[in-house]
Computed example of a mutant assay.
Amino acid sequence: MTITAILVLAAGTYAFRVAGPLLRARMIRARAGRDGTDAAALPSRVTELLSAAATVLLVALIATAALTDGGSFAGVALPAGVLTGGVLAWLRAPFVLVVIAAAAVAAGLRALGVP
């Protein structure tokens, strides 16, 4: 049973990852056939929407991971650690420093009794 679940999840993950490039190639071919030209790129509006959609999904994932723990509010320590890591990453700090500082802030707040 376990190996079946692993194989199904692996196949699903691969399908999602390969769907992006295949869909892009199909959209480019469809546009090229419609225009009668040799289109090499998607329309700029579609590219902007896809970029915005990717950003929204990433922000939603970060918010969900930072604010919830087991389906309920995670408290203040976890979002504070994520915020610390985000600020340091935005300031282009080395990745190791970002991870250590984020963990230290969250652990320090929890050690002080902050939920």
Rank of each mutant, 00 (worst) to 15 (best):
residue 59 V to P: 01
residue 22 L to P: 01
residue 9 L to E: 05
residue 101 A to R: 00
residue 68 T to P: 04
residue 21 P to N: 03
residue 21 P to T: 02
residue 97 L to W: 14
residue 77 A to E: 02
residue 52 A to C: 13
residue 113 G to N: 12
residue 64 T to N: 11
residue 68 T to L: 14
residue 64 T to P: 05
residue 72 S to K: 12
residue 115 P to E: 07
residue 7 L to Y: 10
residue 28 I to L: 03
residue 43 P to T: 08
residue 41 A to F: 07
residue 10 A to V: 06
residue 85 G to R: 00
residue 65 A to W: 10
residue 103 A to V: 13
residue 64 T to E: 15
residue 84 T to F: 01
residue 28 I to W: 00
residue 102 A to N: 01
residue 100 I to H: 10
residue 71 G to D: 03
residue 39 A to Y: 01
residue 91 L to C: 07
residue 60 A to S: 08
residue 109 L to R: 04
residue 93 A to C: 08
residue 48 E to T: 15
residue 8 V to T: 08
residue 99 V to A: 11
residue 73 F to A: 06
residue 95 F to N: 07
residue 8 V to P: 00
residue 104 A to E: 15
residue 2 T to M: 12
residue 10 A to K: 05
residue 54 A to M: 11
residue 68 T to R: 13
residue 94 P to I: 13
residue 61 L to E: 04
residue 65 A to F: 10
residue 114 V to F: 09
residue 19 A to L: 09
residue 73 F to T: 05
residue 3 I to G: 11
residue 20 G to Y: 11
residue 74 A to Q: 05
residue 43 P to K: 01
residue 10 A to M: 10
residue 33 G to V: 05
residue 34 R to I: 11
residue 88 L to N: 01
residue 66 A to W: 00
residue 111 A to K: 05
residue 53 A to D: 15
residue 12 G to C: 14
residue 4 T to Y: 15
residue 16 F to A: 12
residue 102 A to T: 03
residue 71 G to T: 14
residue 5 A to W: 15
residue 97 L to K: 07
residue 107 A to V: 14
residue 101 A to L: 04
residue 31 R to E: 02
residue 61 L to S: 08
residue 98 V to T: 03
residue 13 T to V: 08
residue 24 R to V: 01
residue 34 R to S: 12
residue 107 A to S: 13
residue 94 P to G: 14
residue 114 V to T: 14
residue 38 D to H: 11
residue 100 I to R: 02
residue 34 R to K: 12
residue 114 V to H: 08
residue 74 A to E: 04
residue 18 V to E: 02
residue 80 A to G: 12
residue 93 A to G: 12
residue 55 T to I: 15
residue 66 A to I: 03
residue 25 A to Y: 00
residue 77 A to H: 02
residue 74 A to R: 03
residue 64 T to I: 12
residue 17 R to Q: 08
residue 22 L to N: 13
residue 16 F to K: 09
residue 5 A to K: 12
residue 21 P to M: 01
residue 19 A to I: 12
residue 61 L to H: 13
residue 15 A to Y: 06
residue 2 T to K: 15
residue 83 L to R: 02
residue 73 F to V: 13
residue 97 L to G: 09
residue 9 L to Y: 10
residue 46 V to P: 02
residue 37 T to K: 14
residue 64 T to S: 08
residue 25 A to I: 03
residue 60 A to E: 05
residue 67 L to R: 01
